[in-house]
Design a protein around this nucleic acid. Sequence first.
DNA 1: CTTTATGGATGTCACCTATCATCTTTAGGG
DNA 2: CCCTAAAGATGATAGGTGACATCCATAAAG
Lengths: 186, 186
Amino acid sequence: MRVSQAEKERSRDRIVTSAARLLRERGVDGASVADVMSDAGLTHGGFYRHFETKDALVAAALDQAFDQFISTVSRGALTPDPQAAVAGFMKTYLSEGHVAHPGQGCPIPALAADVGRSSPLVQERFSAGVRRMVAAIGHAMPGDDEARRSAAWRQLAMMAGAVMMARTADSPTAAEILTACGGGDS
Amino acid sequence: MRVSQAEKERSRDRIVTSAARLLRERGVDGASVADVMSDAGLTHGGFYRHFETKDALVAAALDQAFDQFISTVSRGALTPDPQAAVAGFMKTYLSEGHVAHPGQGCPIPALAADVGRSSPLVQERFSAGVRRMVAAIGHAMPGDDEARRSAAWRQLAMMAGAVMMARTADSPTAAEILTACGGGDS
DNA sequence: CTTTATGGATGTCACCTATCATCTTTAGGG
DNA sequence: CCCTAAAGATGATAGGTGACATCCATAAAG
């Protein structure tokens, strides 16, 4: 049955939110349109009233996933000591909780490889999210602009690589990786 | 038609070699059994004479991919100066050539995310390959055993993360990432 | 010359993206 | 205030592709 425009807006939000989680949990191919719609409490038939293609959904979901994750990063960045904020973010990023729950985590270790094989639209949105993250991290790095940006790239690359590898490893190895890269045990 | 056992062995090798490349290029879901068999010059009908399941092929292909890639790493490690060897390996790893050709590159940035969602068998084989790489890299690091291993994890995480992100980015951004992480332009 | 097992051809079943007729309800003009 | 056209949701379905199974012709092996 038809619903109000406000309700449709909320439906769309639920679809995107479900997609943002399921994509990170199962990968681009592993999260089907029907899965996402079902998770959003709808049937798959109505999907194409909201999005042209699955690709468009992926792009929208990536935006939301980065928004959500960056807001987590930035929340700490307003503390008096920006370097302490980055340190706290690193601990959270390199935690077993982040490894265990990709659905709420950083899109980079969860989806970068998939995105590298996806459409230009998806790549562009993803890349924009990555740049936003680098900017957010670099903001709290020491040195001049170029040094901060460069340090932020190294930091982000290491963190993303560490979480990604930890997700393929057994528990002791995962802990070893996280610790080696500067993470905690939380 | 039936072929000799030696020929079967060669068929199997071709299948694994094709899989090792196609998996890295297209991901686990993107490379179908039919694709792999076709690439190996066979039809998909005979596949299950060689492997129980697709999973078993993935495991075998991961082993070969790591073998091939580690032999590249280790080739340089025999030079008089092991630290120079690691530096050379880093330059190669963080090159645009590596970013552009995942099919011959490191399995980690290409497949870690997929593996994190795969069967325990696949995860175990992949994790074993990762540990072999860390051992190979750590071999040429300074400091005591623990420090070397820890430094190797950081290095590998950063390199894998950098290549993975570079593969989702446009050319200038990719170059920026590689340079920031210590790579060259080759 | 018989046995055997490889690889090819074809089939089955499930699932994925995308579409559509249909029902229902909203939104807006008279 | 009501009536009607537009539009969201539904369930069925089309078309394609995936993993995996089965039958068959044939050549190796004894």
